[in-house]
């Protein structure tokens, strides 16, 4: 019971790191991006590559995965995505689905369709007993790391100058420009950091979620659930939504495996019917 709860929390934390970038670009900037999983996939693959080919240690690969995905995100944002901020939602959906299809087929072609594996360092293997439940050390590591990340991101958004600039740029780009904020740069950095976090999540999740070319499609729905259920009030909504989703998914798969993923889809639809603006949003939607 406790083990399941703990696994669920670890899974939820992982989802948060994967999706929090999206919750800013999609939830706050109102840009429908279905291709977020592509950056996670980039992070997962680069980690697998660095560990298996170059023999780098796992812990060193994590920041490298972040940097690689962030650079990729920055590049694509500057060249492609920024053109779409002002376009219709239909255009954004089509464009980002196109990117997903291309990425899936390209990875399949270049690397192959097999599952990627990463070798975890010995100190993260094994299990420990807490309160009578047996918990994998790697999951403890994920929870601690992702918890710290969540706290850091929240601090960055709320306390720093950049955070205020971002919130200003999201609320009203025109006025923000008038106040001397370089909105384009702010958006580009945000997009890059969000992509980097997705890459980091992909690197961390390779062992738990699995990593193959269909990753962006398989997990797209999870990211979207986190964002829509979390609402547009900031990343804390996404954080709680991720935890709920993680626990519901792990618990559902354990206790009622015969209905599978049905439970989370149903949960999402119900939440969206009751609160179309998301679970944790301000009652007055934009």
């Amino acid at each position: 019971m406790l083990t399941i709860l703990f696994d669920g929390i670890a899974y939820g934390m992982l989802l948060f790191v994967l999706a929090c970038g999206l919750s800013v670009t999609m939830g706050l900037m109102n840009f429908i991006n279905l291709s977020h999983g592509v950056f996670s996939m980039a992070g997962g693959y680069i980690t697998a590559f660095l560990i298996n080919r170059w023999g780098l240690p796992f812990l060193l690969c994590l920041p490298l995965a972040f940097i690689f995905s962030a650079a990729l995100g920055m590049l694509l944002e500057r060249t492609l995505y920024r053109r779409l901020y002002a376009r219709s939602h239909l255009d954004q959906v089509l464009f980002t689905i196109g990117i997903v299809f291309m990425a899936v087929a390209a990875v399949d072609y270049v690397i192959g369709s097999q599952q990627q594996t990463v070798k975890l360092p010995d100190m993260l293997k094994g299990r420990i007993d807490i309160f009578g439940g047996s918990i994998g050390l790697y999951r403890v590591f994920i929870i601690v790391l992702c918890g710290c990340l969540a706290a850091t991101i929240q601090m960055l958004l709320v306390k720093t100058r950049f955070g205020s600039q971002l919130r200003a740029a999201v609320d009203d780009p025109r006025v923000a420009r008038g106040m001397g904020i370089n909105v384009n740069t702010v958006f580009a950095i945000t997009f890059a950091v969000g992509s980097g976090l997705a890459g980091l999540g992909g690197a961390l999740g390779t062992d738990i979620l699995g990593m193959d070319p269909t990753f962006p499609i398989k997990f797209m729905i999870y990211f979207l659930i986190v964002v829509t259920v979390g609402g547009t009030s900031g990343i804390m909504g996404a954080f709680f939504a991720s935890l709920i989703l993680g626990i519901a998914d792990v618990g559902g798969k354990y206790y009622v495996p015969q209905i599978g993923a049905f439970i989370i889809y149903a949960l999402m639809v119900v939440v969206l019917i009751i609160r179309p603006q998301g679970l944790f949003s301000r009652s007055r939607g934009k």
Partner: peptide, 21 residues
């Protein structure tokens, strides 16, 4: 009710539910 994004998610969610079913 809801925005484009909510509609997108609801339609997607219903299709996925039927798929699972």
């Amino acid at each position: 009710r809801g925005s484009d994004l909510t509609r997108l998610m609801v339609t997607l969610g219903i299709a996925l539910m039927l798929f699972e079913l």
